[in-house]
């Protein structure tokens, strides 16, 4: 099954082309996702290099969040638009599950984190011995309160390290294993996770909709006028 995979939920986005679980090509998109231009150029480049036509795609994988609201919607809009015109299915996956898969097998628990607003982070617990298993639902935490949820020796990873690494270290008192570098979710792993899900390995999202995890916080807006 040829899969186009889209991961745009964090600062560093990517797209990948897979044949089942094998990566055929992957492109990192560092430019401003608001202009989504890089995504489309990247897809053309990947298809070219793999010698494929867009009509050869059989499924689309999309990382549905949590993460940047705008990023989530850009990825989802691309997935929905392309899947609709090609008449192929979409599989949505959680960006936190993508990170856990990317972390690889590990005897300790995994706790991927992505920054939310202010002192908040998105996180979920996974175990990954022989296969990846979800231990808790994706949710939003205040950094200070995660202590009560994590086992000793839990490995904390993901883009959330960038902003919250220091506070986590202060909280941890050497109990947790905190990644030194932030790891960003990659489209290739989102594609693998989606493929596993399509194959019936039920770990991930059922609905093809954004997975914000957090309800709306209102900001007022004036309709413009000038």
């Amino acid at each position: 099954m040829r899969i186009l995979s889209i991961e745009t939920t964090t600062r560093i986005g990517s797209i990948a082309l897979l044949e089942n679980e094998d990566i055929l090509a992957e492109v990192q998109i560092c430019d401003n996702l608001r202009h989504s231009e890089g995504l489309f150029e990247g897809i053309e480049k990947m298809l070219d290099s793999a010698g494929l036509n867009i009509k050869d795609l059989e499924a689309i994988a999309v990382s549905a969040g949590p993460g940047s609201y705008t990023g989530i919607r850009v990825g989802m809009a691309l997935a929905k638009g392309m899947a609709f015109s090609l008449g192929i299915p979409v599989q949505a996956v959680s960006s936190l599950a993508v990170l856990a898969l990317q972390a690889g097998s590990c005897k300790n628990a995994l706790f991927p984190i992505i920054s939310a607003e202010g002192p908040e982070i998105y996180g979920a617990l996974f175990s990954y011995k022989d296969c990846l298993e979800r231990k808790s639902e994706d949710r939003v935490f205040i950094v200070d309160e995660i202590k009560q949820y994590l086992y000793a020796k839990t490995r904390i990873l993901g883009p959330g390290i960038e902003r919250q690494g220091q506070s986590l270290k202060e909280l941890s008192v050497d109990e947790w294993i905190i990644d030194v570098e932030p790891m960003y979710p990659k489209a290739s792993f989102a594609g693998r996770l989606a493929f596993k899900t399509i194959e019936g390995y039920s770990l991930d999202l059922k609905e093809i909709q954004p997975h914000y995890v957090k309800p709306i916080q209102l900001k007022w807006h004036n309709r413009g006028g000038k």
Binding site: R34, S36, L39, F40, I43, I54, Y69, T70, R73, V74, A77, L78, A79, K80, G81, M82, A83, F84, S85, L86, H221, G224
Partner: peptide
């Protein structure tokens, strides 16, 4: 444009994905 940037992005990205799929 003009409009709400996040709202415009949804339509524009969907449209581009759709157009690309059909060539």
């Amino acid at each position: 444009g003009p409009g709400l940037v996040g709202a415009l992005l949804v339509g524009a990205t969907f449209a581009r994905g759709f157009a690309m799929g059909l060539g």
